[in-house]
Design a protein around this nucleic acid. Structure first.
Lengths: 201, 201
DNA sequence: CGCGAAAAATGACACTGTGTCATTTTTCGT
DNA sequence: ACGAAAAATGACACAGTGTCATTTTTCGCG
């Protein structure tokens, strides 16, 4: 989390710094990115940077949080529009995700260098395990009669499975340079397999 | 890949260096690990290190390759023992994996700091997409009549799904400090869901 | 206004780690 | 036993980090 001093800055200056950070993190992984580049592009001194953030990780996760918060909101809305049809919603969510052109290089970098810490942020888009309350909020939006689960525990694991598969497909989209069409086709195929079951009936 | 000079070393010296590397990579992620620590523990000079390896990544992936090659072999054998029952085999594989005590800290570090590049190595334990030939070898061992797939493409994606879920469970085992029992219970629950299908029949 | 204290900005500095390379030491074939 | 090839060495130049004493700016108030 940014320090208070960052939020005391003018919106303009904040934005300028954020832009510089996005630029750097679009070109380098977290460990390769350098504070020197960011402060140079933002036109501030090295010392100032450390008044705003604990370090580059702090800034990195700040960017990531903004992004995932936005996506989380989008997922909620999609789920409402589909009347709680989870599979329909997550399919629409994936299609919208791979079509998004904003922050493309940043997302590529994040996904190809994803660690458990980062993945957890993404998983919280859907299941948000941190608070019981939030899980209930999401699960209330889901029409469970369409799903083959009994009870909250199974629903929770179903969401886990869906997120694993979704994220892996998204990563592959970048890792293998798939076209949007190919990526969606692969994802839809996997959703079909998941829905009907992997074992012989 | 290590350079030729590394393999010219006596087995004893090779092992000593490998041990030092395992130690360092058990205590630090790839980016945090330092060559200084490794050469100090191994009792060689910094310059020598660069005669053997391109850099620390080279050594890291060398260790990882040895481990995944061994696991791949184990998975093959398990699949044969279960007469090609994929779900039985992968369940046994997972149980054996989380029970393994060797290299525990190294594995924890690798998994919690896993990137796409690293994940790809693990995925190749099962599906080994790099060569058509190898995929055929594995898929020949699988009894597809037990599975709900038609054709090689669906089988390929089924394996992808299984690997995503397996790896995510393994990561969580470390991330959440689950007991072996809990971790296996979660995994078995998810396998059951996968087998019977996630959508209402 | 203007002044003093609090907040913010600055960049030099001490550290840590990387990869290289000229030099020294060891190995090995004849 | 000797000379060339291979291997080992550590000092060095460079790049990046986080800190801190100092300077500059901001802001409340008489």
């Amino acid at each position: 989390m940014p320090k208070l001093t960052f939020y005391n800055l003018s919106k303009e200056k904040q934005l300028h710094l954020i832009e510089a950070a996005k630029e750097e993190f679009s070109n380098a992984s977290l460990s390769d990115a350098s504070i020197a580049n960011i402060v140079k592009a933002a036109g501030i001194s090295r010392g100032s940077f450390y008044q705003y953030f604990e370090g580059k990780e702090d800034l990195y996760f700040h960017l990531l949080n903004s992004y995932t918060a936005e996506r989380k909101e989008f997922f909620r809305k999609t789920l409402q529009k589909t009347d709680g049809d989870l599979f329909q919603a997550i399919r629409n969510f994936y299609i919208s995700t791979v079509n998004e052109e904003e922050l493309l290089d940043f997302k590529r970098n994040v996904l190809l260098n994803m660690t458990e810490q980062v993945e957890t942020k993404f998983i919280k888009i859907v299941s948000e395990e941190e608070s019981e309350e939030a899980f209930k909020t999401i699960s209330k939006l889901i029409d469970v009669t369409k799903l083959n689960v009994s009870g909250n525990k199974e629903l929770y694991h179903l969401l886990k499975i869906l997120m694993s598969v979704t994220i892996r497909n998204w990563i592959e989209h970048f890792a293998k340079n798939l076209t949007i069409k190919e990526s969606i086709a692969n994802y839809e195929l996997e959703l079909r397999l998941l829905k009907k079951g992997l074992s012989h009936p």
